[in-house]
Design a protein around this nucleic acid. Sequence first.
RNA 1: GGGCGCGUAGCUCAGCGGUAGAGCAUCGCCUUCACACGGCGGGGGUCACAGGUUCAAUCCCUGUCGCGCCCA
Length: 901
Amino acid sequence: MLDKNFDAAAAERRLYAVWEAEGRFAAAPDGGAIPYTIMIPPPNVTGTLHMGHALTMTLQDILVRWQRMQGRDALWQPGTDHAGIATQMVVERQLDGEGIRRSALGRDAFVERVWQWKAQSGGGITAQLRRLGASLDWSRERFTMDPGLSAAVREVFVRLHREGLIVRARRLVNWDPSFRSAISDLEVESREVRGHLWTIRYPVEGEVGRFLSVATTRPETMLGDTAVAVHPEDARYLDLVGRFVVLPLTGRRVPVVADAYSDPDKGTGAVKITPAHDFNDFAVGQRHGLAMPSVLDAEARIALDEIAGELRAVPGLADPAFVRGLSGQAREAARTAIVGELERLGLLEKVEPHVHQVPHAERGGAVVEPRLTVQWYCDAGRLAGPAIEAVESGRVEFVPRQWENTFFSWMREIQPWCISRQLWWGHRIPAWYGPDGHVFVAHDEAEAARLATSHYDAPVALTQDEDVLDTWFSSALWPFSTLGWPERTAELARYYPTDVLVTGFDIIFFWVARMMMMGLHLMEEVPFRQVFIHGLVRDERGQKMSKSKGNGIDPLELIDRYGADALRFTICALTGQGRDVKLGPKRVEEYRSFVTKLWNAARFCEMNEVRPVEGFQPEAAQGRLARWILDEAAGTAAEAGAALEAYRFDEYAASVYRFTWNRFCDWFLEFAKPVSNAGDTTEAAELRAATAHVLGTILRLLHPVMPFVTEALWAEFGFGPEGSLIVAAWPTAERLAGAPEVARELDWVTRFIGEIRAVRAEMNVPPSKVTPVLLRDAGPETVARAEAWAEAIGRMARVSAVSVLDGEVPAEVARGAAQAVVDEATLVLPLAGVIDLGAERTRLQKERARALEEAAKVERKLGNADFVARAKPEVVDENRERLSAFQQETARLDAALRRIG
RNA sequence: GGGCGCGUAGCUCAGCGGUAGAGCAUCGCCUUCACACGGCGGGGGUCACAGGUUCAAUCCCUGUCGCGCCCA
């Protein structure tokens, strides 16, 4: 016997353990089934489950469970990411708390410490995924720094290096001064900052009293200026091109160059050029062969090493002592000092408030400093071509399609990818340097040593590159590294390419595009056929959830309060295409009602001895009620399947919800009540069997989204042992013969009952008052139906008897009657003394006015010769029928009004 | 500045050439033997605005306004 309430917490613990123990999540590579594969977007190994995870993992689990039920060999590949910067930061903060500096600890000890932290907290996120009900094949769990995956990383690095697709180069790079590491352009976001625009006078060499004014938002970088650029067609400065100005503070002579980069309409039209600290200036510097001295160190403090030798004293312009005093100062402090000095020298023309875009590190938020360093770069430009082609040709399909534009626009202008990071936690770059700095890229030190020995003709001491790879480098290999690549494993052959990748649009560039580039280059095949891009989770007011705003919701808390099924269903129901998901506890509470409704409907079935009947054939059912609900269930299965096929999670949820609540519970179970109580008649037995069949269908249709409550009910009803629904067959969608005719009949009954209910409610007839119904003008079909469904009509519409009137309604009845029109028939409810006749008249008049208005609308349309001539014939016919129906309804309401006088 | 998306009932959203829908909220009635996390019924929308295409526009096209996101 089912408990009064569903104990979600107990069922979740018990059932997940059963599934896992019985290996229900495990892929079956040796079976004959067609594989269905999804790669989990690996969460940070030391992370905790947030709503974003809950969203994406729920959708993936729905797909995987659905396909598994369709007999596919489902592999949902689990695993976690080492998350270089994030994890290193966490451990550094822990060390800070203990008063230990990373540098004091040393590299090996530090990395060891991170491994300890991983061992200690690494199971957290996977345990939380289990709470959500995720049916991942845990036996195949991988970690990006596993030996196998690390070997894949080294193999790719070596291979791409040998192919010239990975190179080491000294370029300007985005530098995060707080992490003291390079970051990729994707990890930089520009933020609007209210700053100042300073206009500084640079004296023109050899022309006393003449100045060239330049405007800048970053005066401190002037220590590294090596030119001033003006537009080649700017008449104001033409005579200065090729001449020199003297840089204040350092006294350096710098040329005036003509370059189209300078915008004559912006500022003074002349710009200072600091090639080592600005990307645009770097390009100008390259075009004009300028020197590129750096004046900021790894922590963005003033560093004079590269300019110390050239400092000159120029009276009234440059004082080496002042500049030397800046050494080691933070860029902000140096800015203040430099502006003060320029003002003192009378070289500051003006200061204006200025709003401008400043690059910030996405993680950590430090102001990014472009810096000239040696880094490893991956030639993304060459790898992008095949990935672009794969999407163009449809071999990879984005859903919704609009994201393909986003993908194309980035891929077509992709920049070299800086893959080295000055961190300790991650895949160390497999490059070793000889005594003269010659680089040997190899799978391991022994191979590097062999290469070096042959290069130098003698064994030499090698030192390994200190840097690690960008975390996304290993993520990019995930679809094949998890399957054993570079070994040619059976899994790799079977499960690659995967079927679909499910993720948010925020990592299309970081991850999706890179997996495609690497997959196509190394596997020569796309990593997935489809990419389903879902929205982001937002709070109830539509704001992005974030730690800093404190508006985050903990999915585990929601699971504790409402159950995993309720949370999952909420997510599913709210996941439309191309829209973010606004989610709060209230929404989950709303959908928990559905879990409860299902539970109670099942309890009701159980009380009425509904049990699955072996070999039950829907098509063989005789009763009209049974055939109706069986066909509706099949229709719902068709809808649900089509919705999932199209990644319409909202439609899938809505379709099964509607059927379960509004068809099965509200109508079918109500109709079935007397029959189910009727003992052992053939009719009752068949209806019970049909009910069981439909309940089973509902459980199977809902299992992907609500795995726990459905599995619990499945076992309780004896559809199969506990833990077997997960592999039960997805319902077939075969409609029943003659179903449309039965559907019309049931539609009539529900409308008939509905009309009576509405009239009674509107006329304030107390529920205790049972009335007869007299049928006027009813055709033979209506009469037959009214007889056939008399019991249900009586019970559900509080009607004592339905009788057919031969002639007109007796006057004494008519004067107190409430009336309603259903198709050709008029329903007369004798309620003299119970209802207010004036109110009934008003109600009928309102109905009549509505029918008349509709009729007029259709009439206008049909009166339009163009419409009749040009619209599709079936549309014209449809409108003729509607007109006739509204006209008849009006006439019947007129008659009803006459009747009550 | 370039691109994308969105403005439909009080709220959240679906619909996307021919009858405007759902859930929640709201109002009325109902403690009817599965469920008050319930049942029954009602009210509520010039589908942002302005043009255009069409026999017909919430839906297609153009523009305007408002909001959001991405890229520069």
